[in-house]
Nucleic acid binder design. Structure first.
Length: 439
DNA sequence: TTGACTGTTTACCTACA
DNA sequence: TGTAGGTAAACAGTCAA
């Protein structure tokens, strides 16, 4: 059994290897708590060969399918715990020298990274959204990058190896070599910065020789590269989350400040802002804004037309923030339908509207899509009409009016909604008038 | 034939009045 | 405690590959 350890930032990596398996331990230094462990274990070669004989079909499969990232190579069971604490991969062989098994190893590595199953409800946990940011284009792009990264890695290693061979022919003091040195993050102050390796070299040429010899494309190097990639990926995800948090905090503070300056009220007296409600088109083509409703005596209503130009509206906010909008599904569906030119939409158009309008609905689709269908079927105010190109959904306003006044918003973490803010402006006015008259 | 999509229904849970 | 809304799941029908 051999082992090596290297540290980076607040994390420590330990690589253990023996004849038939190796493990990578990734933990947090100052807490001592294990944050992520990637263990890769292989069975003894004798067992592997026994398995191959038993299956008898492995060679066929090997010939029939491309080895890299092909589904048919039937990876061994991979266990994932979505908390990111521990990932365990098991595969038949890691010590095998042939290229196929090396590719299988790489394949498992990337599957291990890509296919962490998380139940939709778990996504509501902010901490875990980090891992399941399916709707985030940045994360998705990163994952796409990883998707072909086995090949890319081999090409990169191969390419950089060639590059290094070329570079090594340069004189140690040539301007080109100096430039390469500057751009090579693995060679800093005459020291090899490869994880776990701090060897000092007289010149870049010596370093390159060391790099080619000690950090070639063996399992250990690939595993180290994999851990480094995971580390960068997690940091990038965390950065995205923190940026979103910053955005939300900034918006919140601006809102408080503006309201307090306009009303003279202390920030603690802040009242919820009515969201920028959809512009519901009138039959004659006019539109009426929520902020222009005549009977809105509450200060936050009066402020609205003045406030909106100053801020990103709440709808705009939810368009870019990964926060669930505080509107009911029924309200959103109705909004979607009424916004359509013909006041009708297909289910798929409603889906698209959700994803277009709200960042939150760009992931977690099995849950909310099911909820949309559930609401369409459940509420009588949604009427299915068979059209020429398939069924479309419309809103039965009469039925909807019956529901008006009932409690139809939920209490979320952010209590944005006033009791009638789920209605369009004229509805809010109507209800306000009735409430006033009844007093 | 199969899988994806659509639509309906039921059950259970939580928040609120 | 009843009601509304959210989530999950089962199930059936349709349709395209």
């Amino acid at each position: 059994m051999t082992h090596s350890m290297w540290e980076g930032g607040n994390f420590r990596f330990i690589f253990l290897s023996s004849e038939d398996h190796f493990s990578l331990v990734f933990n947090q230094k100052n807490t001592g708590r294990q944050r992520l462990t990637t263990e890769v274990q292989g069975m003894p070669k004798s067992e592997r060969e026994g398995d191959k004989r038993a299956s008898g079909r492995e060679n066929e499969q090997r010939d029939a399918s491309p080895p890299l990232l092909s589904k048919s190579s039937s990876p061994q069971p991979v266990e994932h715990l979505s908390s990111g604490v521990r990932c365990v991969s098991e595969l038949n062989s890691l010590r095998a020298a042939d290229e196929f098994e090396r590719m299988q190893f790489l394949q498992l590595m990337f599957q291990n990274f890509q296919t962490v199953p998380i139940r939709p409800s778990v996504l509501r946990s902010p901490a875990l959204q980090l891992q399941a940011n399916e709707g985030n284009p940045i994360v998705m792009n990163k994952r796409k990058d990883i998707g072909h990264s086995a090949q890319t890695f081999m090409q990169a290693v191969s390419g950089s190896s060639q590059h290094r061979k070329q570079s090594s022919s340069f004189h140690s003091h040539s301007p080109v070599e100096s430039e390469i040195q500057r751009s090579n993050s693995l060679f800093v102050n005459g020291q090899c910065r490869w994880p776990g390796c701090d060897k000092v070299f007289e010149g870049y040429t010596h370093f390159l020789k060391h790099l080619n010899q000690e950090h070639s494309t063996d399992e250990k190097t690939i595993a180290q590269w994999r851990v480094q990639q995971d580390l960068v990926h997690n940091m990038e995800n965390q950065l995205i989350q923190e940026k979103q948090k910053l955005h939300a905090m900034q918006l919140h503070l601006q809102l408080l400040e503006c309201i307090s300056t306009r009303t003279g009220a202390a920030p603690g007296c802040w009242r919820p802002l009515v969201p920028n409600l959809p512009q519901v088109g009138e039959p004659d083509g006019r539109t009426e804004r929520a902020s222009e409703a005549p009977v809105q005596q509450e200060p936050w209503h009066i402020l609205l037309p003045h406030l909106l130009p100053d801020f990103v509206s709440s709808v705009e906010y939810y368009k870019y923030a990964n926060i669930r909008p505080p509107y009911t599904y029924a309200f959103l569906i109705r909004w979607s339908i009424l916004e359509a030119p013909e006041k009708q939409r297909t289910l798929n158009e409603i889906y698209n509207w959700f994803t277009r309008m709200f960042f939150y609905f760009r992931h977690n689709s099995p849950t909310w899509k099911n909820a949309v269908r559930h609401n369409l079927s459940l509420h009588k105010c949604f009427v299915r009409v068979d059209g020429r190109t398939g069924a479309v959904w419309t809103v039965d306003e009469e039925e909807f009016q019956k529901r008006k006044g009932q409690k139809i918003h939920r209490d979320y973490t952010l209590k944005w909604l006033t009791p009638f803010s789920h209605c369009s402006s004229h509805e809010a006015s109507d209800v306000s008038v009735k409430a006033t008259n009844s007093q």
